[in-house]
Amino acid sequence: MKVSLKEVNKSFQKGKGETLEVLDDIDFNISEGEFVSLIGPSGCGKSTILKLVAGLDAPTSGEVLMNGRTVTGPGTDRVVVFQEGGLFPWMTVIENVTYGLLRKKMSKEEAHEKAMEGLRMVHLANFTGSYPHELSGGMKQRVAIARALVMDPDVLLMDEPFAALDEQTRLVLHKELQRIWQDTGKTILFITHNIREALTLSDRVLLMSTRPGAVKREFTVQAARPRDPADSNVVDLERRVMEELEEEMEKVLKEEFGDDYHLEKSRVRDSDHSDMGSHI
């Protein structure tokens, strides 16, 4: 197992004496080279799981294992791509991409070479001297992906990396990410609230329930790659995931709007149900 979470619980201190339980006995494994997506309603603890795996936060109980060893802090074997990229605005593209390499005590020339290789992989070799604000949202995400890939991590952790992008850009990046994943054989943990995105990219989709988050169900996607959204397997899965999610969404909406709220199932079904985010 590349990554294992064993009965992981996480709660946050919320003011005096009160605690907010976010994760409830999370237990799952990711094998080497597997592409796994986490999907679930907003606030269910997806980002929290990612941070625990990254070692940026510690579980309240239970443990996170990486290659069989307990995770105690961040390490360059697990690099994160954040929703907003997290590029350093005071550094140029190439400085951003070489940042981690130089920290590894790699020589300037070698780091530059590797960074160029990474940038070519995401088709941005001509923008090395630009600052992040001079790039489009899609380009920034590609730089962030290159910055993570050049570190040659065992596991790539991605927290809604394409959520802020328009549909066209997202489709292009899906293609690129699939190609990169197939070329490099990386293990990827991918967070999204877009069902279609999860089904297009993943080997396995873990569906989480509302807070305190637990893994409610697991779907294995057995469609040929590259994925065709019209594939009968995908269409069938999409409907099943949507049904499960509706249940969870109803809980969230009730929590937010009070008990008098009743989800109009037919309305939700008729709308573009690939993106539950728009209903939350």
């Binding site: 360059t76 590894k104 952790l157």
Partner: peptide, 10 residues
């Protein structure tokens, strides 16, 4: 996010 990104980069 900057601090977290830097920490995961070593």
């Amino acid at each position: 996010i900057y601090i977290n990104a830097a920490r995961t980069l070593g």
